[in-house]
């Protein structure tokens, strides 16, 4: 089954909000797009449980919901991690070796672009140009920008954030 295999953590309150919104949207034609946009905003992603509610309330098939959710890149089947990693695969970064960095990230984290790790700590997105080609290849973690990254630097960068977490927890 495609999509996130993280346990669904939606709250009763979120579900109430979603169902209220769907009841409001249903009488209008073409309710599916605004419904998905609302749910994406509300939950941060569109897991099975949420798409089921949308299908049920709007009286459309789950296949229709999923088809639209996977057609547009504005929707995601995976939640974002606490630390959102972006790796630029734009031309300048790519010719400077960002492909290798991307592979390394996928290997270490065990996820593909668009996905999130099981502990919801890191999510990974392969991005287009982030606007600082002079620093290529560029990798970002939330607001932090790392330039002239080498594949060997990746582990060190990630461990900075992991360490921060274990300090917080400890």
């Amino acid at each position: 089954m495609k999509g996130s295999n993280l346990p669904f953590q939606g709250t009763v309150e979120q579900e109430r909000q979603l169902r209220d919104k769907l009841a409001e949207l249903k009488p209008q034609g073409g309710a599916l797009m605004p419904a998905l946009q609302y749910a994406q905003e509300l939950y941060g992603y569109l897991p099975y449980e949420v798409q089921k509610i949308i299908a049920e309330e709007l009286n459309v098939t789950l296949s229709d919901v999923y088809g639209v959710a996977t057609f547009y890149s504005q929707f995601s089947l995976f939640p974002k991690g606490k630390y959102q990693i972006g790796i630029c695969l734009g031309t300048a970064c790519y010719v400077n070796g960002s492909g290798e960095i991307y592979d390394k990230l996928r290997n270490i984290l065990g996820i593909e672009s668009g996905e999130c790790t099981l502990d919801r700590m890191f999510s990974l997105d392969a991005t287009r140009c982030v606007g600082c080609c002079g620093m290529a290849p560029v990798m970002t973690v939330n607001g932090d920008v790392y330039g002239k990254v080498k594949a060997d630097d990746v582990e060190g960068i990630l461990s900075k954030y992991s360490a921060k977490e274990s300090k917080n927890n400890g």
Binding site: K2, T61, S63, D64, Y66, G67, T70, F71
Partner: peptide, 9 residues
Amino acid sequence: VGVIGANER
């Protein structure tokens, strides 16, 4: 029934 659809793009 509608159990199949066109997924992704």
